[in-house]
């Protein structure tokens, strides 16, 4: 039996789009055919495919948020994360596969934002699959030319004195932005801090919430 996700909720808490009762498309036909051929040729198995889907579903922005909260509260971890983002993340117990990660800390005078103009490179093994807008032609085209206008569309307006630094994720590295720690969060523990860290704040199109 094919793996059935019908009972599950998506990472965003919504049910998956029902795709079983829509007319079969050409590309869906291709997907089924490719998948069955790969299983028949013993290149992969139905179980491996199901397991891979489950592994990807399990990855979501709360993993990255824990990395950020720890960066904010443990100076030794912050140093380790900057030195080798992938190693420090793995040592927290996250299965990020072969991903190479660079952490980009914001400062009051520096705001980082990540884009991939050539495709849709994203730290998927830490944050899960990218949002649709990240893959859109508009985001990929405009972010490198007019990042402040793009940021404004996401509700982030920065003073001229804050440098905006765009990171075009063009090759082998993946990036996570470390947003600035919000004010008046001194008493919060790591779990409470992580709850303030949004997905968009780790892409750079948002900032951390205030409690």
């Amino acid at each position: 039996m094919p793996h059935d996700h019908a009972d599950h909720l998506s990472p965003s808490g919504h049910p998956y789009r029902p795709d079983d009762d829509h007319p079969l498309s050409y590309w869906q036909t291709l997907e089924i055919a490719v998948r069955e051929l790969l299983v028949e040729k013993e290149i992969t198995t139905a179980a491996d495919i199901a397991e891979q889907i489950d592994a990807m579903d399990a990855r979501n922005p709360t993993m990255g948020a824990q990395v950020v909260a720890r960066y904010w509260t443990e100076p030794e971890f912050a140093t380790a994360l900057l030195a080798d983002g992938a190693k420090a993340t793995r040592e927290m117990g996250f299965d990020i596969g072969p991903m190479k990660l660079i952490a980009l800390p914001n400062r009051p005078d520096l705001h980082n934002i990540v884009v991939c103009t050539l495709c849709s490179c994203y730290p998927r093994n830490l944050l899960g699959l990218p949002p649709d807008w990240y893959k859109s032609r508009a985001y990929r085209s405009r972010t490198v030319r007019e990042p402040r206008k793009v940021l404004a569309e996401f509700g982030v307006t920065l003073p001229e004195s804050t440098e905006v630094r765009v990171h075009d994720s063009t090759a082998d590295m993946r990036y996570i932005v470390i947003p600035n720690r919000p004010a008046r969060t001194e008493g919060l523990d790591q779990a409470a801090l992580a709850a303030l860290v949004t997905r968009d704040s780790m892409i750079g199109t948002g900032i951390a919430r205030t409690p």
């Binding site: 490198v144 030319r145 007019e146 990042p147 402040r148 206008k149 001229e160 440098e163 905006v164 630094r165 765009v166 990171h167 075009d168 994720s169 063009t170 090759a171 082998d172 590295m173």
Partner: peptide, 26 residues
């Protein structure tokens, strides 16, 4: 593989949104 930092002024010239903003690419 090099991470190279450019200024927006270098990339976009007079059309740059904010000339002193920067961009990095591999």
């Amino acid at each position: 593989l090099y991470r190279v930092r450019f200024t927006m002024a270098e990339i976009w010239g007079a059309d740059a949104e904010t000339p002193n903003d920067t961009l990095e690419a591999e």
